[in-house]
Design a protein around this nucleic acid. Structure first.
Lengths: 337, 337
DNA sequence: TAAGTTAACGAAAACGATTAAGACGATAAT
DNA sequence: ATTATCGTCTTAATCGTTTTCGTTAACTTA
């Protein structure tokens, strides 16, 4: 690999001159600059990120920490959407992204923070992890700039999907369509789940609609089988709900299968409502009635926030930003009134 | 950040001794080792990957190059599946992965190869790109160890999904169910497309089944709208096909919409066949009849091959490995006989 | 006792870059 | 004529490691 030294001896100047010529410093003569740059190009010079980072203390590399309970990794629709737009935005700003490995199995492995320090990431984005995992907390509390997705810590910038608004819109829509017997199969305990569940309860209370205990069930996110099972339980009740909310679109399909197997039609006999707005759901009939989370905006804002935290920490606020999504009116909700 | 130097002065030994102690060299006294290691742990020492890589010429970081025509990025099911298992496997071997940015817009941007050299990747995995893009070719022809997914170059290790076997199995299955009027909406020109298309034609020729010109159409991968349009064209033909093959599962849903809008039922009036085996398709009714590509195995093998190429180039063969998938019998194919 | 071994550690160079400080002519100001 | 100013370029230190040779003292061996 050709280095500054090679170019220097080729051009008969010092290494410093080459460095400054390539970085367009002002104290190098104009024609010397073009001579050096020409030589650099011809010799196929590519700077060495490692060497550069040692001097500058900046790697232009950010770490990505992600892991969901189902371990679906990159095949997780919501996260893949966020990460894709995040990636595009940071790349525009000249950063690369590297995953912080989340293989917790090995005994002597590095912690998340150690891994981040080892690679000297300029910043880190965290999503979908167990946010109260001590290792995650350790990372968040470190001096590395951090942006989290969908979870609020005290001293960390967070980009939040509008779970409250989303659930609120869904409930409004469903109630306005005349439903009162509404069940909710919610995801496992997490900040996001709580926001949605509390909002669900609050809204219905505001509407003066009483939801019986047995209409509220829990099933993990993205678990079609769990949703299937819970749906069967709901269908067995003496007073069947007219509409079922699910943790996410993926799980909804599990529920829909249970409904179909019971010989019921959607939405004629029972309505279903998802959450996420996964792409494929737009193309499948019946189209899901769901709340589309704005993954593009979430990722883009996370990227912009993180870069700001890295590059101008003095003038950048730690803040919580909420990103609105939108209600998708599909074909799975029946109008009862 | 605490460095070897800090530990050295803390322990009253030289930097060299600390380095060797931590790397378990044999010429350091046993109790000196424990003393140094204890101090390192207490002081929160984390090695600096950049400094290490400068001396060793190894970064333990591999590059990922990926881009599909639709620019779906990480939300591309097939690629996300491959990458997820690839990531897991290389992490086991102590490597991290970093994306080679594919933003082709900027004028002064680095080429793929320049980016890879800049980061000094130990190896690179390439998938879903335009394989005849000069920049991709340049990267492949460099001295960096490369593994490609689903595309054969002369001197490069490749992991191939069994497109031939998959298409072959699908045709067998469809023909054995009594279909003879079979249409194929194939994806855009690519090595993968050619393999499938040639196999489609060859198999039907072997069966002595004549496929009229107008049964073969082209529509991009993962393009539901294109598939929708082409399907409408097929449905307008005087002799309608009894079964339509699609480029992939995603596109299939676009076609299914066209069919439904024409008032036709699947599979009673017309059968459809996908390709990919995306996860969600297992949970949606009707279940797609499709060929499930083994993305887990593809990613794992790609990782193992790449690590072997990096770590023991002398004893590792350049080879093409084909990974079998399996036929998923869904509910979208009608038995005609 | 003299010479050879061995175990344990250190000095220093090197990887490839950045940058503060200095050097050296040439020109402008006093 | 002397000093100041300026434009260009070099010297040298430094970032945090690894690794090749020494070096030193203790211990064997003849």
């Amino acid at each position: 690999m050709v280095s500054l030294k090679d170019i220097a001896s080729e051009c008969g100047v010092s290494i410093a001159t080459v460095s400054k010529a390539l970085n367009d410093h002002s104290d190098i003569g104009a024609e010397t600059k073009v001579r050096i740059r020409k030589a650099a190009k011809e010799m196929g010079y590519v700077p060495n990120a490692a060497a550069k980072s040692m001097k500058t203390n900046r790697t232009h590399n950010v770490g990505v920490l992600f892991m969901d309970e189902a371990n679906s990794g990159l095949t997780h629709d919501f996260f893949a959407g966020v990460l894709e737009s995040f990636k595009r935005e940071v790349e525009k700003e000249g950063y690369d992204i590297t995953f912080i490995s989340n293989d917790r199995s090995k005994p002597g492995r590095a912690s998340y923070l150690e891994h981040a320090r080892y690679r000297r990431f300029d910043g880190v984005i965290i999503a979908n992890v167990h946010f109260d995992d001590p290792e995650v907390v350790e990372l968040v509390k470190s001096n590395i700039p951090v942006v989290t997705i969908d979870h609020i810590y005290n001293e960390t910038t967070t980009i939040l999907s509008d779970n409250v608004g989303g659930m609120s819109d869904l409930v409004d829509f469903v109630v306005q369509n005349g439903h009162t017997k509404i069940a909710y199969i919610h995801g496992a305990e997490s900040a996001t789940t709580n926001l949605r569940l509390v909002t669900f309860n609050r809204k219905l209370e505001e509407y003066g609609i009483e939801i019986p205990e047995e209409y509220i069930k829990e099933s993990p996110y993205r678990d079609t089988h769990g949703a299937y099972e819970k749906t069967l339980e709901l269908l067995k009740l003496r007073t069947r709900p007219t509409c079922i909310f699910y943790p996410d679109d993926y799980a909804t399909y599990g529920g829909m299968r249970a409904i179909a197997e019971r010989g019921l039609r959607i939405p004629e006999d029972i309505s279903v409502v998802g959450f996420d707005g996964i792409k494929v759901a737009r193309h499948i009939r019946p189209r899901l009635t769901t709340y589309r989370q704005n993954t593009e905006e979430l990722g883009t804002l996370a990227a912009k926030s993180l870069v700001a935290l890295i590059e101008k920490p003095k003038t950048t606020l730690i803040q919580q930003i909420t990103v609105k999504g939108w209600l998708l009116e599909g074909d799975t909700l029946k109008k009862l009134n």
